[in-house]
Simulated assay, not measured.
Amino acid sequence: MSSAYATDELLVAYLDNQLDPQQRHRLEQRLAGEPALAERLSLLERSSLPFKQAFAPLLDEAPVHRLYSTIPLAVSSPPHAISRRGLIAAAVGFLALGIAGDRAYLQLSQPDDNWRALVAQYMALYTPETLAGFEGSAAQIAAQLQHTGDRLAIALSMPKLVLKGAELKNARVLAYDDRRIAQLTWLDAQYGALALCIIQQPGKPQPAESERRQGMNVVYWSDTRHSFMLIGHNPAVDMARLASQLQRSLAA
């Protein structure tokens, strides 16, 4: 986790032209010889996720001094003049610490039918290392599921959410404008981060459909009270199978 955090902070600093010439030269040498690092830079560079709007509410209420004392942030700006570099670093730090009520925010002014696009942009920043630091006990994860389910009026329990080859890491509530999104995240041993996102959206049931977003496979469906979205790097066939399993178990 700390390695992924430091790497993203460095890359965002590079994009924001906040590195001194020597740091910039060293990083450019690494980029020339490390394709994975160059790909990560490209992802961060082309992401249209508006970081400041997305994370500003979280930063306003976060225990900044605790965050700064726990993770050595190399940010020269004061807390109330945080750059995009600081926002990324803080966001990753919040994920690692599980602070601020275990919430993150996606408060963006977008139409309701774009919520999947917003989640995909958010999930595109996840790496396996992002979730590797989560080692919550079964009791802690059960409590997160209870809290998250209560907020969205849906029954969530660990037996319903067992996926072969993937470990359930956490459950949290994201905010989308004035709406809530439940995010359940697994670490798939082979393909990395995998997430089921749920939004309260009454309407007619819709069968599962598939799409591609941000280089990931997505399966989405809805019942009379909620819309669901499963997103990850697993192959499309695998995603369809997992989505079918979750659809059955959550409907039971």
Rank of each mutant, 00 (worst) to 15 (best):
M1D: 01
T7D: 07
V12M: 12
A13P: 01
D16P: 03
L19E: 02
Q23G: 05
H25V: 03
R26Q: 11
Q29G: 11
E34K: 09
P35T: 05
P35C: 07
A36D: 13
L37T: 13
L37K: 13
A38P: 07
E39W: 09
R40G: 07
L43M: 08
E45H: 14
R46C: 05
R46S: 11
S48N: 10
L49W: 06
L49C: 10
L49K: 06
P50W: 12
Q53P: 03
A56K: 07
P63A: 05
H65Q: 14
H65F: 07
L67T: 00
L67A: 09
L67C: 07
P72R: 09
A74Q: 13
A74D: 13
P79G: 02
A81F: 03
S83R: 07
S83D: 15
A91S: 15
A91G: 15
V92N: 11
V92G: 10
V92M: 13
F94V: 12
F94D: 03
L95T: 06
L97M: 15
G98E: 06
A100G: 05
G101N: 07
D102K: 10
Y105Q: 09
Q107D: 12
Q110A: 13
D112P: 01
D113T: 09
N114Q: 15
W115Q: 09
A117E: 08
A117L: 10
A117V: 05
V119H: 02
A124Q: 14
L125T: 06
L125A: 11
Y126F: 15
Y126C: 08
L131D: 02
F134K: 11
G136L: 09
A138I: 04
Q140A: 12
A143V: 00
Q146F: 00
H147T: 15
G149I: 00
D150W: 04
L152A: 09
A153N: 12
A155V: 14
A155I: 10
L156Q: 01
S157L: 03
M158E: 12
V162G: 04
V162I: 14
K164A: 14
G165A: 15
A166W: 08
A171G: 15
A171C: 13
A171Y: 02
R172H: 08
L174Q: 02
A175D: 15
Y176I: 06
D177G: 11
D177V: 04
R179E: 12
R180A: 14
A182N: 11
L187E: 01
D188A: 08
Q190E: 14
Q190Y: 07
A195R: 01
I198F: 03
I198E: 02
I199A: 04
I199F: 00
G203T: 03
K204I: 09
P205R: 04
Q206R: 10
Q206E: 06
Q206D: 00
E211F: 08
E211W: 00
R213N: 06
R213L: 15
R213H: 10
N217Y: 04
N217R: 06
V218I: 10
V218S: 07
V218Y: 01
V219Q: 03
Y220E: 05
W221E: 05
W221G: 03
R225S: 13
H226A: 02
S227K: 08
L230A: 04
L230R: 06
I231T: 09
G232T: 05
P235S: 13
A236F: 02
D238S: 14
M239G: 02
M239A: 09
M239Y: 02
R241D: 13
L242G: 00
A243F: 04
S244Q: 12
S244M: 08
R248W: 12
A251E: 14
